[in-house]
Design a protein around this nucleic acid. Sequence first.
DNA 1: ACATTACTTTTTAAAGC
DNA 2: GCTTTAAAAAGTAATGT
Lengths: 186, 205
Amino acid sequence: MTDPKDTINIENVVASTGIGQELDLQSVAMDLEGADYDPEQFPGLVYRTQNPKSAALIFRSGKIVCTGAKSTDDVHESLRIVFDKLRELQIQVNEDPEIVVQNIVTSADLGRNLNLNAIAIGLGLENIEYEPEQFPGLVYRLDDPEVVALLFGSGKLVITGGKKPVDAEHAVDKIVSRLEDLGLLE
Amino acid sequence: RLRKWQERIRTKDAGERNLQFALSEIDRMASALGVPRSVREVASVIYRRALKEDLIRGRSIEGVATSALYAACRKEGIPRSLEEISEVSRVERKEIGRTYRYISQELGLEMRPVDPKKYVPRFCSELELSEEVQTKANEIIEKTAEEGLLSGKSPTGYAAAAIYAASLLCNEKKTQREVADVAQVTEVTIRNRYQEQIEAMGIHG
DNA sequence: ACATTACTTTTTAAAGC
DNA sequence: GCTTTAAAAAGTAATGT
C-alpha cells in the first residue's frame, strides 16, 4: 500500500521579490530578448526562462513575481537568471534580494476512487463546495494548514495555497484520516 | 434636516424599486421556465436573504435574482441546468454559476449535488418516451451511481446518457442528437457516459 | 468517430484601471 | 472586481479531419 504522501509532487511555485530599483519597462522590453510587454493589457513585463522553466512578471516598481517553477530551488535559480539578465542591461540589482514563496501547488494520489457525493455529505455540505455541473472537483478548505484541496473521483487531488512544501503533506495526512474516519476511503 | 430626510426616502425608494425589479425578474424567468409558484416564492426568499446579508454589493441585481432562482429550482427538486437558466436570463452562464456558489456559501444553503434522476421525467416527456423508458433510465442511474460512476460528472449529461441507453433497451430508440438537444449537452458527452454506464450495467449495446 | 485545442476550478503576488 | 503568469486535477465543448 502506497502512502499517499509519497505521491506528492510539486507542480508550481509562485514567489515574489524585488530588485530595489525602479525600472523603465519600455527600454527593458527593447533590450531584453523574448520579453513580452503590453502595458495596455497588463502593467507587468513577462520574461520566460527556459532552464529551469518559469515566467517572471517584472513591474515598474522593480518588484518581480516568478511562477511556473517546480521547486523552491528552481525559483531561486530562475530569479538568479532574471537578476543577471537585468544586470547585463546595466541595471542595478540588490545583492541578494529577499525571495518570498507565496503559493505552492501540489498534486497527489489517494490510490483509490472516491465517491464525491458521499464525501460531500460526510465532510459536511457547509465545509465543501461540489458543483459537478461547473467543475468535476470537490473543493475542500482546510484551516490547518491553511490550504485548499481539490478532490477528484479518480482519487487524485490538488493542494494549493500553501507556502511550505510540508503544508501539502500535512493536508494529505488530514484528508486521509478524515476520509478514513468517515469510512469513505477504500 | 430636510435634506437628509429626503435622501433617506430617495434611498428607500431606490431600494424598494430594486427589490421590485428583482422580484419581477424572478417572476418573468420562472414563467419562461414553466416552474411552479412555490419555486418563485423560494427564490424570492433567497433573494431577500441575500439582500439582507448585503451580498448584492459588487454584483448585479439580475445576477443574484437569476442565481436565487437556480438555487430555488434545485431546492424544490425540479432543477434546471445553468444552460437552461441562462437562456431566460440576460446574465451569462459563468456569472450565474459563480454568483450562485457565492450566495450558496454565504447563506449556508447547504445545497446537495443534483440527482440526475430529477431530469428524467422532463427530458423523457420532451422526447415523448414511455414510462417504461423512464423507469429503465432511473434504474441505470441508480445502479451506476452506486458504483461511483457519478463522481465529477455533470447531472444533465449523466441523465441524458441513461435515457439514451434506456430508449435503446426498450426499443424506443432516440438518436444521440435528439437526446443531446433536449438535455443541452453534446453527443460526445452522451457517448462517453453511455459507454461507462452500459459497461457497469453489464449490458451489451 | 476520432483527435486537438481550449475552457471550467483553486491559489498567489505584482500595478493599474 | 478585472487584467497576466504558471500548474495540476477531470469534465465538457468547439472545431477539425
